[in-house]
Nucleic acid binder design. Structure first.
Lengths: 227, 227
DNA sequence: CCGACTTTGTGATTTGGCTCACAAGCTGCG
DNA sequence: CGCAGCTTGTGAGCCAAATCACAAAGTCGG
């Protein structure tokens, strides 16, 4: 189990465990936590927690559980959150503004360091304590201040163009909020968050349960035609 | 293949195909699309597209491809997007405001019909053309206007409370933007979007590639001690 | 009408991840 | 020290989903 290959699914859950552990550490009720309790807090099952944590190494004690502080440190380190990742947002519309002032980022070690837009209206404006700069300055800015992560918050039509600016500037990690696919070289990592896709998935299941209810109702009436 | 059980993974991709098809329909270059092209637009592989679409029925023509308009209609219907799903947002902070005025929702048939908060500052304010109401009015509002989907955009500490309000009001579909788990009865469907989790995942892979580069560099120096 | 070409639909296989179940290992108590 | 009671770590089996590969079914040109 000493292989350095942590499954993708596990990586995606580490941040969830991290948050649960932070909550536990704040409310100082105990020094250790069992896989059972962590599972409850993270909304998964206990075996999965244990298997996930075992990929990081054997950090638990049988009969006792996991030391909260130690586990916190290990997960933080594994996720690369012991260092700051300077981050830039491109596209200062509704969404970009909200992201720029979103507390959740800074709380988890992602300081937003620069904002860019290509409309002359937005450039020069102050948003969340930062001055919006023109997209053309991106490359220089990356070179100067070592930006590592780029966030796309533009309309979908500009997403590809912004992604290419990022790639050109040497950024290797991109978070794309625009509802559009972007193509990048294989050494660049893109993750996508689509706010409306999740709603559409909810719609699917909602419709299905309503359809089932309607069908049941129809059957009931057929079976009892003259109630 | 006539089974009505569409795999979850397929449901999650249908919105992506939908968007790609809408793009194609707008730019009217052709009446049909091949699985190959659709796959390229959606960022998946062609066999997956075909298998996904086959769960909806046999809507393609061999040697030709899929009729764009017809496929659009079928996916829209399957996702339950032929009807409107009245939606409410609870928590009118930075994020809630951005979501309330986010164009992407209305473009895809999710009209935001009501906004709620429980701070007396926010209540009464106008955001995106709607008046913010107090959370206590939620239940009445659901009864009156048939709200179907609830969005949580509060800080994590309030998420569970808001979820319980939703459940109490009879809402069965919840989209949770708060970085916290919520517990609901099994007949309620919760989906979670966590903006910072995606950044943390990016951080993991970014750190890993940097670590590999550093190790390689170190090796190079060891092998060439007196360059 | 035929043969070359294109593209779908889908069995078969592989992969990856989830769950179960239990041995191994720790604590605390008598 | 030995035993009872927890809790971890992990092999084994299982299941869903991704991929492959190809027959079936269409188009088009001559």
């Amino acid at each position: 189990m000493r292989s350095r290959a942590i499954p993708e699914a596990t990586v995606a859950r580490l941040p969830i465990y991290l948050r649960a552990l932070l909550d536990l550490a704040e409310t100082q009720r105990a020094l250790t936590v069992s896989s059972e309790e962590l599972a409850r807090l993270a909304g998964v099952n206990a075996a999965k927690v244990r298997k996930d944590l075992s990929y990081l190494g054997s950090y638990g004690t049988r009969g006792v559980g996991y030391d909260i502080e130690y586990l916190l440190y290990q997960i933080t380190r594994e996720l690369g959150l012991t260092q700051d990742w300077p981050t830039a947002i491109v596209g200062i519309g509704n969404l970009g503004r909200a992201l720029a002032s979103y507390k959740g980022f800074s709380e988890r070690g992602f300081r937003i360091d620069a904002l860019f837009d290509n409309s002359s209206e937005a450039v020069g404006e102050e948003v969340g304590g930062l001055i919006v700069r023109h997209l053309d300055e991106l490359k220089d800015c990356v070179a100067e201040s070592g930006l590592c992560i780029g966030i796309i918050a533009t309309p979908p039509t500009s997403a590809q163009e912004v992604a290419e600016h990022f790639v050109d500037a040497g950024i290797k990690s991109i978070l794309n909020f625009a509802p559009a696919m972007v193509n990048v070289p294989p050494d660049v990592n893109v993750r996508k968050v689509d706010l409306s896709i999740e709603l559409q998935i909810l719609s699917f299941y909602q419709q299905r349960t309503q359809a089932i209810a309607a069908a049941r109702e129809a059957n009931r009436r057929l079976n009892l035609p003259s109630a």
